[in-house]
Simulated scan of single mutants.
Amino acid sequence: MPPAFSLQSVLDVRHNRVEALEIELGRLLAMQLNAQNLLAGLCETQKGLMNQLVEAQQGEIDLFKIRVLHDDLRVVGERMETVKEELSRLEMQIEKKRRDLVAARQEEETLQILRRKRLEAYQAEQARVEMAFQDDLYIAQAFRQRYQEI
C-alpha cells in the first residue's frame, strides 16, 4: 500500500479552490450572457421606437406623441449605456477570474505532479526491494543446491 501523500490536504484545498473559481466564472459568464441579451432587447426596442417616431413625424403631427417617443428613446439610450458599462465591468471580472483559474489549475497540477512522482518513487523502491528479495532467494537456492551436491 503506497504511503499517504503528505501534501494531500493542500492538494484538496487547491482542488476546492479550482472548483469554486470555475463556479464563479460560470456565474459571471451567465451574467454576461443575460446582459448581452438585455442589450439586444434594448436595441430592438430602440429600433421600434425609432420606427414609431418616423411614423409620428409623417402626416398629421402629434407633438405629445413625439415628445413621449423622444423621452422613451432617451430612457432606452441611458439604459443601453448602463448595460454596456455593466458588460465592460463583467468582461474585466471574467478576464481576472480566468487568470485566477489558470493560476489555480497550475498550482493544483504542480501538486498532482508531486504526488505522481512520489508514487512513482514508491513503486520504484518497492520494485527494487522485490528484486533484492528475489535475488536473495535465488542466491539461497544456489547455496542450498551447492551444499546438497557436496
Rank of each mutant, 00 (worst) to 15 (best):
D71G: 07
L63W: 11
D71M: 10
E109F: 06
L101K: 04
I94T: 02
F64E: 10
A103H: 10
I94F: 11
R128T: 04
V129C: 13
L90A: 02
E120A: 08
M80D: 00
L90I: 00
R105N: 14
Q57H: 03
I94Y: 13
M92L: 14
I94L: 09
E78F: 12
R74S: 12
D100W: 11
E130W: 07
E60R: 07
Q58D: 05
E125G: 05
V76N: 10
R118E: 06
F64Q: 12
Q134Y: 07
T110L: 08
G59L: 00
E120N: 06
K97C: 11
G77S: 13
D71E: 08
E125M: 09
G59F: 02
L101R: 07
Q93A: 09
E109T: 06
Y122H: 09
R98N: 04
V129G: 12
L73M: 12
L119G: 04
E60G: 01
L87H: 05
L111A: 06
E108R: 11
E120H: 10
E109Q: 11
D72P: 05
K97T: 00
E78A: 12
I66F: 03
E108A: 09
V102F: 07
S88Q: 09
V75Q: 04
I94G: 02
R79M: 06
R99P: 03
R89E: 10
R105P: 07
M131T: 02
E109V: 03
Y122G: 00
Q123I: 13
F133G: 09
A132S: 11
A103I: 11
K96Q: 13
I61T: 08
K97R: 15
H70K: 15
D135E: 15
E120P: 03
R67F: 15
Y122L: 06
E78W: 11
L87E: 02
A104S: 07
Q123F: 15
A103D: 11
H70G: 08
G77C: 10
K65I: 05
K96G: 13
E86F: 07
Q93L: 06
R128Q: 14
K65V: 09
R79I: 01
A124G: 03
R74V: 04
L63H: 14
K97D: 06
K84W: 02
A132P: 03
M92V: 12
Y122N: 02
S88W: 08
Q134A: 14
Y122Q: 04
K117C: 00
R105I: 12
L119N: 03
A127G: 03
V75M: 06
E91D: 15
E108N: 07
Q126R: 12
V102R: 13
V68M: 13
R67L: 14
Q126M: 03
V102C: 13
L69R: 10
E130C: 02
L101A: 05
E60F: 11
V76L: 03
L101Q: 10
E85C: 05
L111D: 04
E120L: 12
A124S: 05
E85A: 11
E109R: 08
R98A: 05
R67W: 14
M80C: 07
V76P: 03
V83I: 12
A132F: 07
D100H: 10
V83R: 10
D62K: 08
M131L: 12
M80G: 05
E130A: 04
T82Y: 01
L63C: 05
A121Q: 00
A121I: 00
T82W: 01
V102K: 14
